[in-house]
Amino acid sequence: MREDLSFARVARVIVASSSLAGISGVMGCHVGMAFAVAGSALDQPPYRAEAIAAELGPSSVRTIGCLDVGLAIYERDHRELVDVHVGNRCGHPESLDLGKLAIQGVDTAGRPRLITLHDPRNEIIPLHVGAAEKGRERFRMENAHDLTRLCFDLEAIAPDAPAARPAPLCFERHTGWLPARGGLT
């Protein structure tokens, strides 16, 4: 009787572990394969230094520490939009705080005006750009109507590169927004 009980207990353990092994074995293999293949197929290639400059033109891009940051300005439905492109040249995450992006505009009368990014949900918080990752975010600029010139001060947006002193990125409105030479004036 004692032997029977012991055997039954061992058998139960074996059946239980076998079932677990079987289920997780087959599931693990299939799930791992399905997601690994799908993920790899959908992957974007690693970011290469200067890739944003090649896309937008070097006068629309600044390198701040590990980050290449490029801007493109345009108008859509009477709203001024800015595309912020960012690429991490390095093999480790770099912090990016677009909430610290300082934007100043000049209106048609020549008066300076402070511009802010539209952020009704307070989403624009400091985040880390993954190693070799590339991203793009599109923002609406508030209070940006009737401007002839826009300047973006990028100095504070990369907390991991406190010594970086990137020159401001300025744009002038012609038929569209084009990179400008010089500063705000």
Partner: peptide
């Protein structure tokens, strides 16, 4: 914001 590029 940040879904496609941030590690967080």
């Amino acid at each position: 914001y940040g879904d496609s590029w941030s590690i967080e």
